[in-house]
Every structure is written in C-alpha cells, then in structure tokens.
Design a binder for these strands. Structure first.
Length: 784
DNA sequence: GAATTCGCAGGAGTCA
DNA sequence: TGACTCCTGCGAA
C-alpha cells in the first residue's frame, strides 16, 4: 500500500541537474542533486524526459494521437503557444517527451509520415539539461522545495534565488613540472575549503589517492580550479592514468573522463569540458578570459587574483583559487538565474550564448523557440544596405591640447535604447497597418516600430536594466568600504556585463531571433541622441571637442558654467542619464598627420587631477613590448602632472630625457626577454596565414619545439629581425640577438607622435649627440 | 556555435 | 625609395 503521509516537503539548494544519456538496455534519466540541511540527496525526475515541439497545421486532435502513439514518445502535453514570435495568434502545440533521446531524428521523421496533417518541429536542439530548467521553470542552483518517494522526485518548485553560502566549495590546485604532456609530472596537489588548506606531496599515485579520499570525505558541491579544462584536469587525468588510476570527481559511481589525447601538433584553444555529475566544476580561468575587467591582465592566477582584490597578497595558490571562486559565485549565479544555465556553463560560455538562453528561457512558455532562423537575412531591408553608418557616431576631434574638458557618458545607452524604443525582431517594421502609419519612426532610417506589443528583447533586458539601476541606487546609499557595498558591486558588475552583448547579438549570424534592421536602429537612435546632446551643449555655451557613440567631450566657454548641470539638463530632456564621468585639466588629441588639425579618433590622453587617463594609446595595448609600454607610461605620468598647457610644455624635457635613457638601455642590450615580449593572438593555423607575420613564425617554432600551441590562444615572442621572431619561452632559455632597430622605434615612435606637435624631433629622443642615427645600431644580445 | 561596428597601425608585398 | 594596398590584430564604444 502506498503511503502518501510519508511524502514530506523538503527544502534545499539544487546543486546539479544532469541527464544521464540513454544506453542500450538502460533508459536515460534526469538526476538531481540537492543539498539539504541533512546532507546531499540524489533524486531521479522520472516525469521529465527530453522533448521537442510539434506544431500541427490543422487536425490537432489527430496529430496529438499520432504523436502520443509513437513508441518512442513517453507522454505528450498540448499547450496553446505562438508558433513564432512573428505570429499574431496562438495555436495548439504538442510537446513530445521522448523515451530515447538518441532516436529524435527518426521519431520526427515517423511522426511526419504518420500525421494526418502537415506538421513542423522545433525545440529539438535545445540543450538537454537546459530543457529541464526551462520547462520546470527552476533556475540552476536555486533554492527549491520538493517531495520525494524513495529516491524518486514527486514534485519540485523554485523557492528563491541561490544562496551561494549554502554551497560547499573546494579549491583544487595541482602543480605540474611542465605542461608538455610527454614530460609532465605531478608535483603536488593542494586543497582549500575556506576552513583550511591541505597539501599532498610525494609519489604521484599516493597524491591522486589522497585527492580521491579528500573528495569522498569532504563531499564538496563545487570544485574550483584555475584553468581546469586546458591544464589542470587533462594533465591530472593523464598522470592518474599513467599510474594506472582513474579519478571519480562526480557523485556517480563511475570515473570521470579527463584526458583525451590530441594528435594535432597545434590544437584548438577550446578544450573539451569535463563534467562531474552531481558536482559543479568551476573553471576560473575561462571566466577571466571573457571578463572585461580581467581581460587586460595576463590571465595568470596571480594577476587575476590581484586585479579582483586590488591587492597583492602572499597566499597559496589553492587559497587564491578558493577566494576567487567565493568572490565570483554571486556574480555567476546572477547569470544562472536569468539564463537558466548551470554554473559549469556560466563560467565557461561566451556571453552571446547566455544572452540567447535568457531570451529562450523567457519565451518558451508562450512562444515556440525555432531551431533555425525564420528570416535568414534577419529582416534586412534594401534601405539598410545603402546606409553606410551602421555603428555609433564618432565626431572627429580637433588635434591638440584642450584645457578644462568634461567627459560625459550616456550610461548603458544601447540597451536603454532598445528597451525605451521597444526594438526587437518582431516589433521593428511589424506588419500592422496601424503601426506602419502611426508607430514611432527610427531616426535616419525611417523604420516603424510596433505599438501593439512589447518586444522580447525589451522585455528580457528591460528587467536586467531595471535591476541594474536598482542596485546602483542602493549602492549610492552605502559606504564603499562596507561588505554590503562590495556584495552589491559584484552583482552590479554581473548585471552590467549581461547588458553588453545583447545589442551585438541581435544581428549575430547564428542567432535565430536576429534582426539586422533592429540592430541598425539602435545606433541610429544613439546617433540621434548624441547629435541632439551636441546641439544642446553648443546652445548652452559649451564647445564639443569630441564624441564617440555614447560619450561627449565638452569645454565650457564660460568658467561659470557647470558641467554637472548640463548633464542633468540632457538627462531630463531625453529621460536618459548623461553622467559626468570626469572633469579633466586637459585632453590631448593627436593629429592624423603632422601639422594636421584633424585629430585621431579613439585615441586620447587626459589629465584628471594629475592622474593620466588614456585610451587607445600603446600603453593600453598588449601587442606592445613591456619596455615600450613602461616608457610611455612613465612619460604619461610625467606629463599628466601638468596643470595646464604651459606646464605641459615645461614637463617635456624631463620626459624626453627619460626616453633617451630607456633607448640607451635597449641599445646596450640591458634588457630581459620579458621586457621585449609581444603578445598576439594566433587566430588560425600557421599554414593558413598568407603573410608570414612575427607571431605566426613564433607559433611554428613553438610547435616544432614540441610545446603546446593553441589556435585562438596567445603567442608571446621577441622580434629578432624582418620575418624573424623567437617565442618568449625559448628566448628566456638562451641569449638571443633581438632586433634593436625595431625595438628602439617601438619605444620612440609613440612618444614622438605624442610630442612632435610641441616641437620635439625624433632624434631628440635618441641618446647621444643629435647627429645620432639609427644606422649605428647593430644586433645586441639581451640578458637572460 | 554563441555579440557588433568603427578606427588605427604595423608589416608584407607590389608597383613605379 | 616611397606610395600604395592587403592582411592581420588590437582597442573604444
């Protein structure tokens, strides 16, 4: 007899939802791991199966029957939904839950044959684990309320967002002798779980056994690693296997597949992701790679940690990994909540995929998600082809040094535009006659916007924008040093990032909801606002120095004018915040050519209270040698201290003297390979390059030397001559003759460009008497 | 399989 | 040799 009284409701945090694939003789299953107060429970959700949508053209009842009677269909569910976002009305859509997900293609084929009416299919390509979250309406890692009956889930519902403090995190850091698989040995494994650290040393087999024992005993929910997919896990797997062992990282009985040997000499950077069912595998390196704030570092654990905590601390690697994980978890779970993707994915995937998932998750209840784009060109009208300006507006600056300049920014301009003006695939140039005549018009392009319905992009991202504004307001009331502020700041950064890519994703080729017309409308509105703001500035007695997309550089013609007040005036006028970011002592724009009054766009140098504010110059570029960047940085610091043009000119001699000293060092060979290293991305295989560039030559040499080279990865090299370069790793090992002329020019030219308008000659930046010439340079060996 | 456009610059290669 | 184009990559927004 079934005793329902035993079904008590429990609460917990959903750690993992995993679909075990079907195998011959064993059907697939959705398994859930939930952390409760009493510990971890594993449940099977038998009601839920992988599924797809069947959209009958007519004869719904008969189609339902045909689908329901198919031998691979476990059960069906018919709900009225919009068959497409462009549809004006709903139609009954049958969802077929499958017994064996491997047979999805043939099941669809057979249903098509047996149906009494034409049918179309959709939603078969939605990732199998995401289907569970989408359709159950339960975000990954959220708090849940559930009932069970002997390991089988009876009911489940979301009971709030994820509380990351409920998850047990264990940081794992393995030290290897080298990353070369052929020579690699495991040196040590360290663990950190917040309470303490442990380090295993000694024989490889013993270390692997200790790690397994620690996992079994501590039973963490998440394993945090730095560069898990590319380094830590594959090498750990390799060494375990070499010692005749296998690791079990998940909460299932079988071992985790960690190392797949690659035969190619140069591999793709996107290493396969290991999955440990029941546990979360965090890769903090992959996250740092896509994080705008961290991108500027060299992506080593040390620099990512220092950047995140704005401090350099002497800590063990495992504890750094642990702290990073704990710090970033709330940021990740904010994404999880919205895009319905688990932490495993959120820390690895690019933002576009997560944006797409946000849209899908919001739509799936009411609208069928197509497997392919309905409009392959994404609604590109002939008009849009003709328009040359597609992006933001850039107003050419007047070259030279401008004193007393304010930089004002429209905050989150693009997302705010498509939310405010209701820009979305289905609303731009909609088919309603009424909207065509009376709907809002896009400036410059003349498109009309639907006034009858709210688009999906404004709907989804409007919520993100609202929360971002709410968090921002809350932060203003707090002390920036407080823990509460810090917590909100993490959330704020996540929300800000969630708003960066939706605009671009609108016209991304593989986005099934793409709209080219909609995408072009966004910067069109942006140009409209910026031009209006420029006119308002000029009317109010300011001159506009420069503008790029959403920022405005203005100078007051009358010292009594207030920059902040102008920002508020524009904000009120447009109902769109124009924020005063900086008031600069001066801003310097470089001329296009010597003596030219037209300034370069996207490159400037300003002094904000004596601190340099730089955009686009060499110091900001990673494809410049350390020595060149350090020299420029020092020069900029000297110059930034100047309060006005007069002091700027006075500061020039000390700047040039410094440059001469640095150039002297280069010519004497007083440099280490690291000072000379240039970093570039290898975007294809060396043989695919048409031009034999330095980074391509270096990549070839690395691969020939038996080292790992990843397409899409970064190549560091030292230039030794025309068409000649040596990878940094090799340059460190033996003395090498670097290309002095090239490096001198790399250091001198940026400074020369900066100062030539003030009468500085190229030769003034070279050491020795003025008649010094580059011809003197020979090849000099650098220090090792 | 996972955002875009605009703008700048250096090096290789080509031509006169 | 210098002017030009193409290839490639990077950064600003």
């Amino acid at each position: 007899m079934y005793c329902h009284a035993l079904l008590s409701t429990m609460q917990g945090t959903l750690v993992d939802a995993w679909h075990r694939p079907s195998a011959d003789g064993r059907p697939g299953a959705y398994l859930l791991w939930i952390r409760t107060e009493k510990g971890i429970v594993c449940l099977e959700d038998r009601d839920f199966r992988p599924s797809f949508a069947v959209i009958p053209e007519r004869n719904v009842g008969l189609v339902e029957q045909a689908v329901g009677q198919h031998e691979n269909v476990y059960r069906i569910e018919t709900v009225p939904r919009y068959p497409s976002i462009y549809a004006t009305g709903t139609t009954p859509v049958v969802r077929a839950f499958l017994l064996d997900e491997r047979k999805v293609e043939e099941t669809m084929r057979e249903i098509r044959q047996r149906s009494p009416a034409n049918v179309s299919f959709a939603e078969a390509k939605i990732r199998i684990d995401l289907q569970w979250h989408y359709l159950r309406g339960i975000p990954p890692h959220s708090a849940v309320r559930f009932t069970t009956d002997g390991g089988v889930l009876k009911s489940i519902s979301a009971a709030g967002p994820c509380d990351t403090s409920k998850l047990r995190v264990l940081a794992v850091n393995c030290a290897f002798s080298t990353t070369d698989p052929a020579k690699c040995r495991l040196l040590s494994i360290s663990l950190c779980d917040g309470a303490g650290e442990s380090v295993f040393r000694g024989g490889e087999a013993a270390m692997v056994r200790s790690l397994q024992a620690a996992l079994d005993e501590r039973d963490p929910d998440a394993l945090a690693m730095f560069d898990a997919d590319n380094t830590q896990l594959p090498l750990l797997g390799l060494r375990a296997r070499a010692n005749g062992m296998a690791l079990r990282l998940g909460r299932v009985s079988w071992s985790t597949d960690l190392h797949n040997a690659k035969k190619q000499r140069i591999t793709h950077w996107q290493a396969a992701q290991a999955r440990a069912p029941g546990r979360i595998l965090l890769d903090l390196w992959k996250d740092a790679r896509t994080d705008a704030d961290l991108k500027r570092t060299d992506l080593s654990l040390e620099s990512v940690y220092d950047k995140e905590f704005s401090l350099s601390a002497e800590k063990s690697e495992a504890s750094k990994v642990y702290e990073l994980a704990v710090e970033r978890l709330p940021m990740f779970t904010s994404w999880c909540q919205r895009c319905m993707m688990p932490l495993d994915s959120v820390c690895r995937e690019k933002h576009g995929f997560m944006n797409a998932s946000m849209v899908n998750a919001a739509l799936i209840g009411s609208t069928v998600i197509p497997d392919t784009a309905e409009y392959p060109e994404g609604f590109k009208t002939p008009l849009v082809e003709k328009v040359k300006e597609n992006g933001g507006l850039v107003i050419t600056p007047v070259a030279g040094l401008h004193e007393d300049v304010a930089i004002l920014d429209f905050s989150s301009l693009f997302p705010r535009i498509f939310v405010k003006h209701n820009i979305s695939p289905e609303t731009i140039n909609c088919r309603h006659e009424e909207c065509r005549e009376h709907g809002e018009q896009v400036p410059f392009l003349g498109f009309h916007i639907c006034m009858k319905r709210k688009g999906v992009y404004p709907e989804v991202f409007g919520k993100v924008l609202e929360e971002r504004d709410r968090v921002k307001r809350a932060m203003k009331a707090l002390d920036p040093g407080s823990a509460e502020y810090r917590k909100l700041d993490v959330l704020y950064r996540s929300l800000k990032m969630q708003l960066v890519s939706p605009y671009g994703y609108m016209q991304f080729a593989l986005n099934n909801f793409r709209t080219v017309d909609g995408n072009r409308s966004v910067p069109a509105f942006g140009r409209y606002y910026l031009l209006k703001a420029r006119d308002m500035a000029e009317e109010a007695g300011f001159s506009v120095i420069y503008a790029d997309t959403d920022s405005l550089f203005v100078h007051r013609n009358d010292p009594s004018l207030d920059y902040g007040e102008f920002g508020r005036l524009v904000s009120r006028e447009f109902d769109m915040e124009l924020k005063l970011e900086y008031v600069c002592r001066w801003v310097l724009f470089l001329p296009e050519r010597q003596g030219c009054s037209k300034g370069l766009k996207k490159k400037y140098f300003a002094s904000v209270d004596g601190e340099p504010l730089v955009r686009g110059l060499e110091v900001r570029r990673q494809d410049r040698a350390r020595i060149a960047k350090d020299t420029q940085e020092q020069v900029l610091e000297i110059l930034a201290a100047a309060r006005n043009k007069k002091e700027f000119v006075e500061a020039i001699p000390s700047a040039t003297a410094y440059v001469r000293k640095q150039v002297g060092r280069i010519m004497e060979g007083d440099l280490r390979a690291d000072d000379l290293a240039i970093i570039k991305k290898l975007s294809r295989r060396p043989e695919e390059y048409k031009a034999m560039t330095h980074h391509c030559v270096a990549a070839e040499k690395l691969a020939d030397g038996g080292r790992r080279v990843r397409v899409g990865g970064k190549i560091e090299y030292v230039v030794t001559g025309k068409n000649r370069a040596v990878p940094l790793e090799m340059a460190r090992e033996a003395p090498l003759a670097y290309d002095v002329e090239s490096y001198v020019d790399n250091v001198v030219r940026p400074i020369y460009m900066l100062l030539r308008e003030f009468g500085v000659e190229y030769d003034d930046l070279l050491p020795g008497p003025r008649q010094a010439r580059l011809e003197r340079f020979g090849q000099v060996e650098c220090k090792v």
